[in-house]
Amino acid sequence: MATNITWHYNLTYEERKAFRKQDGCTVWLTGLSASGKSTIACALEQLLLKKGIAAYRLDGDNIRFGLNKDLGFSEKDRNENIRRIAEVSRLFADSCCISLTSFISPYRDDRDKARELHKESGLKFIEVFVDVPLEVAEQRDPKGLYKKARQGVIKDFTGVSAPYEEPESPELHLRTDKLSVEQCAEQIFEYLKKEGLIN
Rank of each mutant, 00 (worst) to 15 (best):
R175Y: 14
G24D: 02
R111W: 00
D23S: 12
P133R: 03
D70L: 12
V130I: 07
E186G: 09
A43G: 10
Y13K: 02
K147Q: 13
E14C: 05
S102Q: 00
G72M: 04
T6S: 11
R175C: 13
A114E: 00
K119V: 15
C25D: 01
S95K: 08
N79G: 06
K51M: 04
G24M: 06
I85Q: 05
I53M: 03
E45F: 01
G196N: 07
L49A: 12
R57K: 14
G152W: 08
E138F: 04
L44G: 02
L123I: 03
N4R: 12
S169M: 12
C97A: 11
R115C: 05
Q187F: 07
V88K: 04
V128G: 01
L172N: 10
E116D: 12
F125N: 00
A2R: 15
L47C: 12
Y56W: 05
K124S: 13
C25Q: 04
L100S: 05
E14V: 09
P167N: 07
A185S: 08
A162W: 12
H8T: 15
W28P: 00
E186F: 14
L47E: 11
R20C: 10
F103I: 02
L67Q: 03
K148Q: 13
F189Q: 09
K194N: 12
A86E: 01
R108K: 14
C97L: 11
S35A: 13
E45D: 02
K143H: 07
E15H: 10
F65T: 14
F92L: 10
I98F: 04
P170C: 04
K50I: 09
G66R: 07
E166F: 09
K50D: 15
T158F: 01
